[in-house]
Amino acid sequence: CHSECLGNCSQPDDPTKCVACRNFYLDGRCVETCPPPYYHFQDWRCVNFSFCQDLHHKCKNSRRQGCHQYVIHNNKCIPECPSGYTMNSSNLLCTPCLGPCPKVCHLLEGEKTIDSVTSAQELRGCTVINGSLIINIRGGNNLAAELEANLGLIEEISGYLKIRRSYALVSLSFFRKLRLIRGETLEIGNYSFYALDNQNLRQLWDWSKHNLTITQGKLFFHYNPKLCLSEIHKMEEVSGTKGRQERNDIALKTNGDQASCENELLKFSYIRTSFDKILLRWEPYWPPDFRDLLGFMLFYKEAPYQNVTEFDGQDACGSNSWTVVDIDPPLRSNDPKSQNHPGWLMRGLKPWTQYAIFVKTLVTFSDERRTYGAKSDIIYVQTDATNPSVPLDPISVSNSSSQIILKWKPPSDPNGNITHYLVFWERQAEDSELFELDYCLKGLKLPSRTWSPPFESEDSQKHNQSEYEDSAGECCSCPKTDSQILKELEESSFRKTFEDYLHNVVFVPRKT
């Protein structure tokens, strides 16, 4: 048989008469490798580009789960590009990614509803959504962080984005990388972005840091009482949809009607710091009717980097990364020049730590249904340095008659930039024990000054392991946590139920 035959053949030295091919099969003959313009397919066939392209389009058009959109890589027609490569849609070739590779997620039936953290986790790592997304989240724990972890990498949506009755959302900033909504599939009414009845939605994105392009379709905003109209108009300008909307697409009466839409800028007039305090004062603000001013709200939190936005980490279910302080308005003076500047002394802060701070007014709604208010920009203030805590785990070892090696770990709280350490030492008198000992005694162990690591005695271990207080009263049991108490109650309830079950099964009433 021919060298490319495997198993047997019907005619000697003829690659077209093989029972099976050793390498690849091409047009009725066995070959060692697939010549151009053919590609290896499933490690035994040679196919042309049209064959591989037909497989790709067949799966793409069917949208069946589990099928493969075949691509070409290293002269092979394979189910998908290997790690580190992405497909070129024009020629199906796998090309190296520039940075992290995109991950295209194809949605069944063309859309997916995100109504819980669990459903959001199914899209973790996706960068391109081939379909439409509907966000409908009523509640949950730590929602802002969970949504950002699972949806934060999405850069492109081919269909539309719909935010509907998501009472738990305060902001859409968890879509931190969303840059493009194509609108290839539109919501009824030709809408590519749809926001309806979101009672706590206050911000779409921080438009000073976020760009969003909507290729096709219109915007729809109705019944978002805490979303200011200025935020919607800003989205029109940034996304390129200005002029597409009709009169009733953006409701003037049901958007922002319960919001404090600040239209003035508060400026800080005085800032002073110490290692654990920050004193702030800002310019006074009074609405047209000074009785509408209820006070100020001061927001602050630790910020290692200057990239904080107002609604980071917030949701309507209680999660809030900001510390909020309510401040009463100052006494009002008739003389504008003698107006008191409101302020606040922030206490209990960490030394040498940068804080993000902003302040906003708290006002009631005027009778004319106009909203007044003022808010400052987010500023960054760093507390002063102070003395560091003591170095940890000092170790001293003498390696000769004239040297001592000293080692330690950095302090747990540096409280500033540590530039150097101060080492103090003092000579001590020799131990009298060394002169009084009889060095001729056998088995004498000389006193040693070398360091030995501390260890816990058996008594201390027994005390720590004991669940009861000892007789001397030195140790006591740790208080039980809520989960331990709940577990004990469940076990007790189970024992009672099981005992009742045994009584009912074992003891049967005697027939009379």
Rank of each mutant, 00 (worst) to 15 (best):
R291C: 02
D257V: 14
R244D: 10
S158K: 11
W286F: 04
K360I: 00
G318K: 14
L201Q: 06
P394L: 08
L204C: 06
N340M: 14
L172P: 08
Y167L: 05
T185K: 13
T353F: 07
L362S: 05
Q339C: 14
D393W: 15
L294A: 03
E146R: 15
G152T: 01
N399Y: 12
L161D: 00
L212D: 03
W207C: 07
L178R: 02
K409L: 07
L151A: 06
I163F: 02
K409T: 03
D312Y: 07
S166V: 09
L172A: 10
S319V: 13
G318P: 12
L186S: 13
Y191D: 08
L265P: 13
S158A: 12
S171M: 08
F275M: 08
N340D: 13
S402Y: 14
H106L: 07
A168T: 12
E187W: 13
E246S: 09
L169N: 02
G189Q: 00
A374L: 01
W322F: 06
E184V: 08
N320D: 00
G240T: 01
Y167A: 11
T309P: 13
P388L: 10
T273P: 07
F290M: 00
M297N: 14
C126I: 03
L172K: 02
N399H: 13
R347M: 05
N150P: 06
D367F: 03
V238Q: 11
C126A: 01
D384P: 12
A149T: 12
T215R: 13
S401H: 06
E264C: 03
K162C: 09
K350N: 08
P304H: 15
S239N: 05
Y223T: 02
K226E: 02
V238G: 13
E155Q: 07
N263V: 07
K301C: 04
G217T: 01
F358L: 04
S274A: 08
K267R: 12
E109G: 14
S116Y: 05
W205Q: 04
E246K: 06
L123P: 04
S173N: 11
L252V: 11
S274Q: 14
G140P: 15
A303Q: 13
L169K: 02
L153D: 14
K350V: 03
N340F: 10
S119C: 02
I214P: 03
A195G: 14
S274E: 11
S132H: 05
R247T: 11
Y191P: 15
S398G: 08
N136I: 00
D257Y: 07
R244A: 10
S321P: 03
L227Q: 06
W352I: 15
W286P: 00
A168R: 15
I379G: 07
L178M: 14
W282N: 01
I157E: 06
P411H: 05
Q306N: 15
K277A: 09
K267Q: 09
W286L: 06
L229T: 11
F296K: 03
A251D: 03
V324Y: 07
G131S: 03
T361S: 05
R347L: 07
L108T: 13
D257L: 09
C228Y: 03
S132P: 01
F268M: 09
L108V: 13
Q216P: 01
L201H: 01
F290A: 06
L294R: 12
R370S: 05
M297V: 04
P225E: 05
M235I: 14
G183P: 06
P351G: 07
F174A: 08
G152H: 15
T254P: 05
G373E: 07
Q354M: 00
S376L: 01
M346G: 14
I404A: 00
P342C: 05
S338A: 12
I163Q: 02
G313P: 04
K177R: 10
D206M: 07
L294N: 04
R124P: 05
Q382T: 14
F299C: 02
V359H: 00
L362R: 03
C261A: 13
T241P: 10
D335S: 14
A144Q: 09
K177H: 09
L143R: 05
K209A: 11
W352L: 05
N307Y: 02
E262N: 00
P287I: 02
S402W: 06
L294D: 06
E111R: 15
P288N: 12
N334T: 12
R291A: 02
A120V: 06
S389C: 04
I271K: 15
L172M: 12
V363F: 09
M297K: 08
Y194M: 14
N248G: 08
A303N: 07
R179S: 10
S158N: 10
A120P: 02
V325A: 14
K360F: 00
L252D: 10
D328E: 14
N399F: 14
L123Y: 05
A303D: 07
E246L: 10
Q403P: 02
G343P: 04
R165L: 06
P388E: 02
L252T: 09
L345P: 10
P287C: 02
F193W: 04
L227P: 00
G140M: 11
P287V: 05
W282G: 02
L293I: 02
R176P: 06
I134A: 05
K218A: 07
V170P: 10
E246W: 03
S173V: 07
Y191V: 11
G313H: 14
F175Y: 04
K209T: 12
F175R: 05
N200R: 11
Y167T: 06
H233L: 01
R244M: 07
E187V: 11
N399L: 12
S401V: 15
A195Y: 04
H233N: 07
I379N: 03
I395Q: 07
T241F: 06
R202I: 04
C317T: 05
K409M: 00
N340T: 15
D377W: 14
N248C: 15
F193E: 00
R182I: 06
D206H: 06
A195N: 12
S171H: 15
S119L: 06
F220T: 15
L108F: 12
E231D: 15
Q245N: 09
T386R: 11
P336H: 10
K218V: 11
V363N: 06
G217Q: 11
Y305H: 13
I379H: 05
V128W: 15
T364Q: 01
I395G: 11
D377Q: 11
D315M: 10
I154P: 03
F220L: 08
L212W: 15
L293R: 01
S192G: 13
V308H: 00
I134P: 00
S171T: 11
T386Y: 12
F311T: 07
K253H: 14
A251S: 07
R291T: 02
K337T: 14
V390T: 13
C105K: 00
L293G: 01
I114Y: 03
W352C: 13
K409Q: 14
N200F: 07
V390R: 15
K209F: 12
I154Q: 01
K277F: 05
M297I: 06
F365G: 00
L180V: 11
L349S: 03
S333I: 07
E302S: 12
N190M: 14
F175H: 03
N141L: 05
L227F: 04
E155P: 06
D312K: 05
Q216R: 06
S400C: 09
L123W: 05
D289E: 02
L204H: 05
Q245G: 08
E264H: 05
T127D: 09
S376R: 00
S274R: 13
F174H: 06
S260W: 05
S400L: 13
Y194D: 14
S119E: 04
K277P: 01
L362Y: 04
Q216I: 06
Q339L: 10
F268L: 07
K162P: 01
G140Q: 14
K360V: 03
L169G: 08
S158T: 10
G243E: 07
E236L: 06
S208H: 02
L349I: 09
G125W: 05
V325R: 14
C261S: 02
L212F: 13
E262C: 05
L279H: 14
L349Q: 04
